[in-house]
Each structure stands twice: as structure tokens, then as C-alpha cells.
Write a protein that binds this DNA or RNA. Structure first.
Length: 886
RNA sequence: GCGAGAGUGGCGGAACUGGCAGACGCGCGAGACUUAGGAUCUCGUGGGAAACCGUGGGGGUUCAAGUCCCCCCUCUCGCACCA
């Protein structure tokens, strides 16, 4: 080690100059550029790519800091690491910017990307920028179109007219996954239903596989798997036809789906969804027709949010028609009910008030008979006095009033009745999913054009593959008003039919931007491929993503779509993996405390007067000559509206990227929420400065150590050993914490302890050191820099260079610990009396039980507790403790 | 309502399979160096005068419980008429 390099440097670490230098170095030297290398094991580390909104926020910083530590760590572990970055560049905000500021979405997006790329660069992230992908470029989205065509060929992309979710604010259709509690996932506007013809991706064709292969993802958080399971919502049951008492033309029966066929003897009426096409023929010519039509019209008009609200009331109307319960042969009325969903099952149900709470409430409201067909084990249920439905599904209930099935348990009856129905031709087994096909049409401009044509003669005709990409026309007036903006671009709309050559009209909707993000991770494997979306050989090497990192908000949305498209692309023969992401880390939110004033609402930190101790006041009110206390609100997710955001750029300028990264990793484990703390950030900056000073002190010390004449002594050797022990224990701790679910917070704590320990150990020494100590300190210093490298890469490079070593430290092997040095020579053994700590003794690490207990028995404090009485029992836990029971 | 997760000092958080509760950081207190300190360094810091008491509350298992079992409370997130 040369002390010189340290001597020539400023004592204070200058992050602004140093960080820039190393960012330039990594770029110049292509430190993180990778190619396929079959001789080496690959590691694909990926963070969810950002929407280029303009500036990065703290959520990005956290996400990318986590990913970067993993990528850098795996690189040092010897893997061939693919760590790419790109831009989810299509989307509504660009169009809104166009409307508000008259700037073209493309211009706005490019500008944002340029700015954000610089910001990411300033974070010192180890990306292979040569693989950058931008979804709004024709080179990218042409492959969206290509997939669309392939899916169309296979019947996986189809067009249908149906009721769809419409966001009046975004003026576009939304997929089911994009509606949360009846509101638009992006802008929170209440979604309404519209009857439109739209393109769909047949994700339901993969429902079963999407569900089953979740079991093959042990590297995913349990709750994400459960959320997807629930979303897919598989139900196994039967379909049964209930014949109509009076047929209406071809309509002779109403088909229902149920999972509770065991209760079929209790079906005393039927309910249809208001949208059911059966309603109209059933009411035809009846006195009830007008009332039913009025009811259907009223319910259909309701917003989804209202219709599915928690406190919705059960409502319905009798159609006048009757069906026959095929099991009891009883004549039962057919109703229309607001809670029956047209999209699920057959849009019609058999209603069993005694054993279904919804039917029960409905029956009570309209005076429909309740028929008990399952009795509880106490035999206390009675249809006339039932207060709620008895929904027993296990073996506690037995069937009653069910002819030959009476006496069976519920599970048994389910099987037997299903078999009987099938044998008698009354019904058949059926499986239903909650999952709906993915509506991908969007009535917006800034997205991938759907490569379809409408020819008067030939109907729907796909664009020829050789004509791809269908480029998004540049000069389209984006006003945010009316239908799809592309419909106004005459030159775009008018095309000729590839089949007959006649005039054809182009599809003017664009694709959901979730299509773009459903396969970008494949594109990174071969970003320049121009014959195919992905080069099978390269994807074969890199896929699947070993570690994917992003927010929990995509638990169903993006992560379900990406799994679906991966399977489709596999079936197209381009890749062989079944799942895109082997391991998933869902990071927590970045939160911060909020403040508000009764007059001005949410307050910025700069709008506060006073202090924590004497209480905060609203500075805006103060300026207006009023005294208003500022109420400290809850700790909330950072957001502009709550005025509790922190600008990463400012943070990086003030403290440097290493500090910003370190704090994001230290304040909480990755999967938990991280509460922002300005003083905590300072603590991290202080730590890095402490490392810097420690290293210069060690360098100076080693210089002196060099000149020292060699002289050996037991004490010096022991001190050297102590340093080495600390070093190797730290290697183990940091490595284990990273390996064990990326516990970076405790890994960093171990580094802090290491630094504290080294300060202490070197402060205790006289300035002169013997060679053994010099060597031990040199090892400690090198180790510290290596262990720090994934977390604070700039500082680590700088220290590495200052130690006279050849960059880059990012490509050095991760240190290994010597097991012999990790074990201590002496152990501190706590002595307990009746399980309570009373004393401690020091023993050699290799002591036997007898030796430790014997030593403990002589302990003065213990003897006081024993007061001459022999203990009833002595418990010794190997290398842990001794417990005397008295 | 259903499902999942969480509740530990003044604060963020440690404690992997039951075995020294509070690592590490912040904050706070004392001191050192300083013209000065909001820089830096050192020491201290769960509560209590003490015996002792302490991981949301109450029971239990155990030599020993933050950790295991039962009951309850609170909070966060997800789903919410899916037949």
C-alpha cells in the first residue's frame, strides 16, 4: 500500500469530482458491457424499467440501488451478469403534455429519457447501456405488432363487441386488471361501462397454466402468488340445465353454473344477470316485461363502482317465467337480480336461499320460500327460523330433504350429485375462471398501432408481416377530445387491402402499453436483433431473469401479463423458458412524514416554522400575520400531492450518489417500507467520510510500519490476530446477509461495526507497528473496500486506486473468509439462575461441558445466588450458556 | 366479511433453527480539540434510587419465550356479491 496517494488527496472526500470520474471511467472502459459466454455462468439481474416521466423519484433510487447491489455483488462472485436498463416510453402522460404544452409526445418523451438517463448515470448504476431499449421506437414496437399478428393467426388475438371499462378522464378503455375498486388505476376516476368492439388477447387460454406454474415459483413472495391465484380464480363445479316451463322458441332451458351442486334440492328460484340475453325472450309478452326492462336499464346504467360497492343492496324483479328444478321437479320462478354477474359462469344461477347468504337475503326480501337441504350436526336448523344461510362446505353438515342423497356429507354429495347429473344428462362438470381476456385496444395516440385493416370486401385483414412496422404517424392533432386521435389522420387510415388490393381502413386504436412491458426483458437479450423480436440462442443463454426487482403494485398487472406473453412466445418457439422471472423481490414504498395546516392544507418542509420541540407552525399563515399550528400528519408514501417528496437530484448533489444509495439500503430491509430521514442520510454520509479517514490513517500507519525493524512478540501477534478475526467475521456476516434475502441493512451495519472496530484497534496501537499487524491491517483495508464496493461503488474505486491497486474494484473477486479465523478463541458464557442472567464467565472456545460448568460453579456471583444449596438441575447449552435451576 | 403481514427504547430498525433483548444508525447527554462548532473524536444512553420490571394485552408450554400454543386488541396491505 502506498501512503502517497492518500497524502496527495484532500483529507475531505470530494464526492462531486470523484463520482463523476468513476462514472466516466466505467463508461469509457465498458466495465459493465457483457456478451454471452457459455463458459461462464450467467446471472440476469433486472429492475422494472421506468416510465420516462421527466425526473427520477426516490422510489426509483431505491429500486435501482437494490438491483445494483445485487448485480455488482454477483459480478464479484464471478457470474457473467446481464444488468440492462430501458424505457417504458409509450403512455398517456406524453399525450397530456402534448395537450397542455403543445409539444409532440415523441419530443417530450425523448427529452425526458435524455434527462433521466443522466440522472441514472449519476447514481453510478452498473448498467450495460449498449442494450438500452425504448418501447416507443419502431425497432421495438414493430415486434409488438409482430406478436399481435402471430397471436391473431393462432386465435389468441380476437375482436369482439362487449361491455368494457371506460375511463372518462383518460378517454380510453381499460383492462379488468387496470380497474381498482371501480376506479382507473392511473388517474383514480370512476370507470363506466361502455359497449364497444375491441381487440382482446386470449389470456384465458393460459389460465390453467398461469395458475399451476405459480407453484413452480418458490422465489416469488407468497402474497404475490396468492394475489395472482385469486385473480385467476378457478372454480370447479357443474353446469346444469333447468328446463323452462314454457319454451320460448329455441330457448328451452336456462343453463347455470354452480360449485354447490350438493344444495340443488334447495334451489327455490333462479336469478339471471341483468345483461343476460335470456331476459328479453323470457319476458316477451308478459305483464312483467315493462318492469323488468326498467330494472335492467337502471342497473346497467350504474357505474361499476356503485354496482360493486360494499354496501350494495340486493335487488331484483320477477320475469314472470318459471323453470323446473330438475332434481325436485318443482316449478321455480326466474328472477333478474342485480348481483348476478353476466361475465361469470353462464350469467345465470340457481338460487339456494338456505345455503347461500346472497340468495338468502334476496329470498327474504321478496318472500321466496327457503328450503333446508343441509342440517348441522346438532340438528337445530329450521328453514322457517333461519337467520342466515348455512354455508357449510366441510363434513359438519349432512344432507336432508334430498331424496337418495339424504344423509351424505357435503363433499360426498358434491361428487355423487355431479356424477348423477352427468349420467342422467342433466348437466356436466365445468370449470370457471374469474380471469377475463385481456382487452388491449386503447383509444389513444401514443402507443403501438394495431396492425389490422378493415376491408369492405374481405373484412378484418392483418397487415402483411413484411409491411411491419406500421409506423405511428407523426403529425396527428392530439387534442384529448373525441375518439382515437389516429382516426383523424386520413393518410394513415386509408390503406389498401393486402388481400384484394381494394380500399381498406386501418385500425385506429393503439395497444395497451402493458403489451410493451410484457416482453422487454427478452429484448434486452438481443436488443439489435432485426429478423426476430428475440434471438433464440441469446435468450437461451440469458433467460430466465434470475432476480427481478420492482414495486408490489404490479403484483397482478404487469407480472401476470408478462407471464402470459412469455408462455405465448415460448409456444411460438422463440424461447424455452416457461416463466420469465425466477426470483422476485417486491420492494417497499418510500415514505416520509407529512405536515398540514387547516388553512393551507399539506405543507412543504420549507413551509414550516418553529421546531419539533416547541411545535410546528404554518409559515404561510405566519407570513399572513396568523399563528396556526402545523399538524404532524401520518407517515405516507412520498407524493407530490402530500408535499412530502425528496428530490434525488438534490440529494445526490449534496451528499453524493454513494450516500443516497447507502441510505436507501440501510434504513430498512428491501421488502419493507422505508421511512425517509434527513438525519439518517447525514449518518450515512458521515460513515462514508469515516471510511475515507480510516483508510488514510491506515495508509499512513503502514508507511511507518514499513520502516519499523522487525521484532516479534506474542502481544503483537495477538493484536494482528484480532484484526484478522474481525475482518473475516465481517466477510462472513456481509456475505450471509446478502445471500439471505438481500438483508442489506444488516450487511451495512456489519460494515459500520467493522469500521468502528478498526478505528478502535488502530487507536490502541502505538504508532509503530510490527509486520504482522501491518499485514493484518492491509488485509482489513482491502477487504473493507471490496465489501463496500457493491454499496458505495465510487468511494470503493477511489480507495482501491489510492491503495495503489489497478481498477476496477467492481471486477475483483468477492472476498472469502477463512473458517478458522471466524471462530473465536475464547467465549463469553452467560450464567443463568432459573433462566435469568446473573453472571458471565470467559472460557476457552474448546472447553468441554464439564470444564465450563466447573468454572461456572466457582463464579462468585453464582455462589451468592446458590447460598450453599446445590442446584436442582444444571443445563448446559453448547457454546451458549449455563443455566442453574434452584 | 375473507386473505396476508405487522405491533420491540425518544425514532428507523437488529435478534438466522426457543438460549446474553435492543446490533447498527438517528436523536439525546457528558467530555476532548477548537476563535467558534450545526465539523471531528471519545465515553454514556430501555425504565427504575433499588430490589426488580421490560418485546400490543391476557393465559399457557419450557430450565429458558420477542421467537412455540390458545384467546383478545390495534394497524397496514390485498380481495371484496365470482354462484
Amino acid at each position: 500500500m502506498t501512503g502517497e496517494s492518500f497524502a496527495n488527496m484532500n483529507r475531505q472526500y470530494d464526492h462531486q469530482t470523484v463520482e463523476k470520474q468513476w462514472q466516466d471511467y466505467w463508461e469509457r472502459e465498458r466495465t459493465f458491457t457483457v456478451t454471452e459466454d457459455p463458459s461462464r455462468q450467467k446471472y440476469y439481474c433486472l429492475e422494472m424499467f421506468p416510465y420516462p416521466s421527466g425526473r427520477i423519484h426516490m422510489g426509483h433510487v431505491r429500486n435501482y440501488a437494490i438491483g445494483d447491489v445485487i448485480a455488482r455483488y454477483q459480478l464479484m462472485r464471478g457470474f457473467n451478469v446481464l444488468h440492462p436498463m430501458g424505457w417504458d416510453a409509450f403512455g398517456l402522460p406524453a399525450e397530456n403534455a402534448a395537450i397542455e404544452r403543445g409539444v409532440h409526445p415523441k419530443v417530450w418523451t425523448d427529452e425526458n429519457i435524455r434527462y433521466m438517463r443522466t440522472q441514472l448515470r449519476q447514481m453510478g448504476l452498473s448498467y450495460d447501456w449498449s442494450r438500452e431499449v425504448t418501447t416507443c421506437e419502431p425497432e421495438y414496437y414493430r415486434w409488438n405488432q409482430w406478436f399481435f399478428l402471430k397471436m391473431y393467426e393462432r386465435g389468441l388475438a380476437y375482436r369482439k363487441r362487449s361491455a368494457v371499462n371506460w375511463c372518462p378522464s383518460c378517454e380510453t378503455v381499460l383492462a379488468n386488471e387496470q380497474v381498482e375498486n371501480g376506479r382507473c388505476w392511473r388517474c383514480d376516476t370512476v370507470v363506466i361501462q361502455k359497449e364497444l368492439e375491441q381487440w382482446f388477447f386470449k389470456i384465458t387460454a393460459y389460465a390453467e397454466e398461469l395458475l399451476n406454474s405459480l407453484d413452480g415459483l418458490p422465489g416469488w413472495p407468497e402474497r404475490v402468488r396468492v394475489m395472482q391465484q385469486h385473480w385467476i380464480g378457478k372454480s370447479v363445479g357443474v353446469e346444469v340445465d333447468f328446463p323452462l316451463v314454457e319454451s320460448k322458441g329455441d330457448l328451452t332451458a336456462v343453463r347455470i353454473f354452480t360449485t354447490r351442486q350438493d344444495t340443488i334440492f334447495g334451489a327455490t328460484f333462479m336469478s339471471l344477470a341483468p345483461e343476460s340475453p335470456l331476459v328479453e325472450p323470457l319476458i316477451q309478452g308478459r305483464s312483467q316485461a315493462a318492469a323488468v326492462q326498467e330494472f335492467v336499464a337502471r342497473v346497467s346504467r350504474q357505474e361499476k363502482a356503485v354496482r360493486t360497492a360494499a354496501d350494495r343492496e340486493k335487488e331484483g324483479v320477477f320475469t314472470g317465467a318459471y323453470a323446473v328444478n330438475p332434481f325436485t321437479k318443482a316449478r321455480i320462478p326466474i328472477w333478474v337480480a342485480n348481483f348476478v354477474l353476466y361475465e361469470y359462469g353462464t350469467g345465470a344461477i340457481m338460487a339456494v336461499p338456505a345455503h347461500d347468504q346472497r340468495d338468502f337475503e334476496f329470498a327474504r326480501q321478496y318472500g321466496i320460500p327457503v328450503r333446508l337441504v343441509i342440517q348441522n350436526s346438532a340438528g337445530t336448523l329450521d328453514a322457517a327460523h333461519l337467520e342466515e344461510a348455512y354455508e357449510e362446505e366441510q363434513t359438519a353438515g349432512l344432507l336432508v330433504n334430498s331424496e337418495q342423497f339424504t344423509g351424505l356429507s357435503v363433499p360426498e354429495a358434491k361428487l355423487r350429485i355431479a356424477a348423477f347429473a352427468e349420467k342422467q344428462g342433466l348437466g356436466r362438470p365445468s370449470v370457471n375462471y374469474r380471469l377475463r381476456d385481456w382487452g388491449v385496444s386503447r383509444q389513444r395516440y401514443w402507443g403501438t398501432p394495431i396492425p389490422m385493416l378493415y376491408c369492405k370486401a374481405c373484412g378484418i385483414v392483418p397487415v402483411r408481416e413484411s409491411d411491419l412496422p406500421v409506423e405511428l404517424p407523426k403529425d396527428v392533432p392530439v387534442t384529448g377530445k373525441g375518439a382515437s386521435p389516429l382516426a383523424q389522420a386520413k393518410e394513415y387510415v386509408n390503406a389498401s387491402c393486402p388481400k384484394c388490393g381494394g380500399g381498406a381502413r386501418r385500425e385506429t386504436d393503439t395497444m395497451d402499453t402493458f403489451v410493451d412491458s410484457s416482453w422487454y426483458f427478452l429484448r434486452y437479450c438481443s436488443p439489435q436483433a432485426d429478423k426476430q423480436p428475440v434471438d433464440p440462442a441469446k435468450a437461451g443463454y440469458w433467460m430466465a431473469v434470475d432476480q427481478y426487482i420492482g414495486g408490489i403494485e404490479h403484483a397482478v398487472l404487469h407480472l401476470l401479463y408478462a407471464r402470459f406473453l412469455t408462455k405465448v412466445i415460448r409456444d411460438l418457439g422463440l424461447i424455452s423458458v416457461h416463466e420469465p422471472f425466477s426470483n422476485l423481490l417486491t420492494q417497499g414504498m418510500v415514505t416520509k412524514e407529512t405536515y398540514r395546516c387547516t388553512i393551507h392544507g399539506w405543507l412543504l418542509p420549507g413551509e414550516l416554522a418553529g421546531s419539533e420541540k416547541e411545535g410546528w407552525r404554518c409559515a404561510l399563515c405566519q407570513a399572513e400575520g396568523r399563528q396556526t399550528p402545523a399538524e404532524r400528519g401520518r407517515v405516507e408514501k412520498m407524493s407530490k400531492s402530500k408535499k412530502n417528496t425528496v428530490d434525488p437530484e438534490h440529494l445526490i448533489e449534496t451528499y453524493g450518489a454513494d450516500t443516497a444509495r447507502l441510505f436507501s439500503l440501510f434504513a430498512a430491509p428491501p421488502e419493507k417500507d422505508l421511512e425517509w430521514s434527513d438525519t439518517g442520510v447525514e449518518g450515512c454520509a458521515r460513515f462514508l467520510n469515516r471510511v475515507w479517514r480510516l483508510m488514510s490513517e491506515i495508509a499512513v500507519r503502514n508507511e511507518k510500519g514499513k520502516m519499523q525493524k522487525e521484532h516479534r512478540g506474542g502481544a503483537e501477534k495477538a493484536r494482528a490476530l484480532e484484526i484478522r478475526r474481525l475482518t473475516h467475521r465481517t466477510i462472513r456476516k456481509v456475505t450471509e446477509d446478502i445471500e439471505r434475502e438481500f438483508q442489506f441493512n444488516t450487511a451495512i451495519a456489519a460494515l459500520m461495526e467493522f469500521v468502528n472496530g478498526l478505528y478502535k484497534l488502530s487507536a490502541e496501537r502505538e504508532p509503530e507497528m510490527n509486520p504482522a499487524e501491518t499485514a493484518a491491517l492491509r488485509e482489513a483495508a482491502e477487504t473493507l473496500v471490496l465489501l463496500l464496493a457493491p454499496f458505495a461503488p465510487h468511494l470503493a474505486e477511489e480507495l482501491w486506486k489510492a491503495m495503489g491497486k489497478v481498477p476496477s474494484v467492481a471486477r475483483r473477486p468477492w472476498p472469502r473468509y477463512d473458517p478458522a479465523l471466524v471462530a473465536s478463541e475464547r467465549l463469553t458464557i452467560p450464567i443463568q439462575v432459573n433462566g435469568k442472567l446473573r453472571s458471565k464467565i470467559e472460557v476457552p472456545a474448546d472447553s468441554t461441558e464439564d470444564q465450563v460448568v466447573a468454572l461456572a460453579r466457582q463464579d462468585a456471583k453464582l455462589l451468592e445466588w446458590l447460598q450453599g444449596r446445590p442446584p436442582r438441575k444444571v443445563i448446559y447449552v453448547e457454546k451458549k450458556l449455563v443455566n442453574f435451576v434452584i
